[in-house]
Structures are given as C-alpha cells and as structure tokens.
Simulated assay, not measured.
Amino acid sequence: MTDFTALAHRYIDAFNETDPVKRREVIEQLFTEDVIYTDPLGSVRGWDGVDQFIAGAQGQFAGLIFSLPGEVDGHHDIARFSWHLGPAGADEPLAIGFDVVAIDGDRISRVLGFLDKLPG
C-alpha cells in the first residue's frame, strides 16, 4: 500500500531541491519515466519535462519554499493534497495550489494541478 503522505512530502522536496543533480535524482525516483504533468501554467511529459518545469518555477519564485499545509488524502492509486508557496516562516503564503496525483506502483505517473491563489 502506498504511503500517500510520504509521497506528497517527496513531491514537495522535488520542488524545493535547487541543486540540479540532486533534483534530477529525486525526480527519477519519484516519477515514472513517462509522467504527465499538467497545471494552468503548463503541461509537460517525462523526467526532462518535469525537471525543466520545476527549474522554471524555482527561477520565477526564487527563494520561496513549497510546503504541505494539511493532510494528504488518498485511495486506490490516487492522492490529493494542497500546497503553499512563500517565504520560510511566513504567516500567509504567496501562492496556494491543489494537486491530484495518479500513482503507478510507488511512483507518480500523472499530476493534475490547480492554482487557488497566485502572487499579485
């Protein structure tokens, strides 16, 4: 059985890993090779696509940290969780999102992301 909370924490870790080599290692361990990632800001496929997408988000939001603000909910081969993006220790996040992930074995095969709040 998949530990959905641990998987979501690894997902957040991937978005926070700024070392390109370490980030790629996390991506290859966390996602299937043919992963599909879709949110309002883009749609990518595969490890290279996810790596470039995360690098782009890090460039756009340099110095900000992704975090899990609440519980992770999952059943069968899907999970959902909210995330926050903001300065470490901030009272209010600059961005809030909600992701649904499909899981194949112990890896994420699909991400459907939604944005609830974006920085002005």
Score class of each variant (00 low, 15 high):
G59L: 13
Y11V: 15
L85M: 12
W83Q: 01
L30G: 13
G59F: 08
A62Y: 03
I65D: 03
A90D: 06
G105Q: 01
I78C: 10
E92C: 08
I27S: 08
V72Y: 02
I108N: 10
E33I: 10
A55N: 02
F66S: 04
F66K: 11
E17W: 06
S109V: 02
T18L: 09
G105M: 00
P69L: 01
D48N: 04
L7S: 08
F114C: 02
L7T: 15
P69T: 00
L85W: 06
K22R: 14
I96W: 04
L118S: 06
L112I: 14
G42A: 05
G63K: 03
F4K: 12
D13R: 14
D73M: 15
A90V: 03
V26E: 08
V72G: 04
L94P: 03
Q29C: 06
F4C: 02
F61W: 13
E25S: 13
S82K: 12
L112P: 00
P87E: 09
V44R: 02
A14D: 13
E17Y: 05
G49I: 00
V100T: 12
D19G: 12
V100F: 07
Q60K: 15
R10L: 13
Q60P: 02
D51V: 13
L115Q: 05
E28I: 09
Q29G: 04
L112D: 11
L115V: 02
P93M: 06
R24H: 10
D104C: 10
